[in-house]
Amino acid sequence: MRVSRFGVAMAGALAGGMFIGGHALALPEGIETVKVAPPSKDHPLPEIVSGWNFRAPETQALQSDDFENPGFIWVEQGAELWDAVDGSEGKACASCHGDAAESMASVGAEMPKWSEAKGKPINLEQQINACRTERMGAKAWKWESGELLGMTTFVRNQSRGTPVNVQTDGPMKPWFEKGQNLYYARVGQLDLACANCHQDYYGKRIRADLLSQGQSNGFPTYRLKWQKIGSLHRRFKGCMKQVRAKPYKVGSDEFLALELYVNWRGEGLPVEAPAVRQ
């Protein structure tokens, strides 16, 4: 009667693979693989699989073509903002960082990074706002605003195809552990942890949704349900709300730690931003 967790995970993994095989679809544009081996034996997943793999063929197709992908509206908006002068210092991002294709080629795969100045990790949204407030004399963009989403998506898109690789040792270690605890903490009236769904049952249908591993490599992600692009922290909030838990705030230390840990769970997967999801 007791279902073996490992058995379920393996069955799920197989289902994920068949999904691609069954439809023989092109991989997402700019991406060479949606599945990689875990970097070590102690990794909690037997294989690391992008969320793309679990989506319906129509949704996959939207991401596989940059002209169809609605997320590119935000990439374009970000590109314009990159060159736009703003704030009391009369500078644009480009004034200091030049061509984003070069200067931002890998940072999207390495966030959150340790910030010596702040004495804590900093993620992409926070780094963008730090440059605005501390170096441009401009106002911080609000979380989930069109500007911050546009810039975050534009910068992350420069790293498309680059394998996720985050620092988890040294000063990052306590943050990694905090994120890990949050990932396995049961919360809400339904008393569920991230791992209950995304580790134990990925590849299985939960009502209308095929459960993925809850990977972050596609963020910011265009969601058909939202009819817009959304940040990783917004997605975290949604997952906590659906188990009837009080979510943490976007940009909070808790979500920052969770972001670091979730990114680590997807280490080696190429960045896909902007991904398209249901």
């Binding site: 009236q189 209950n196 009837r244």
Partner: peptide
């Protein structure tokens, strides 16, 4: 089924679990 089950407890009250106010 044991503590690891994903199936929620339908007639138990959760405390210290960040339960949303309305629940």
């Amino acid at each position: 089924f044991g503590d690891a089950t994903i199936m929620p407890a339908f007639y138990s009250i959760m405390t210290d679990k960040r339960v949303r106010k309305e629940f």
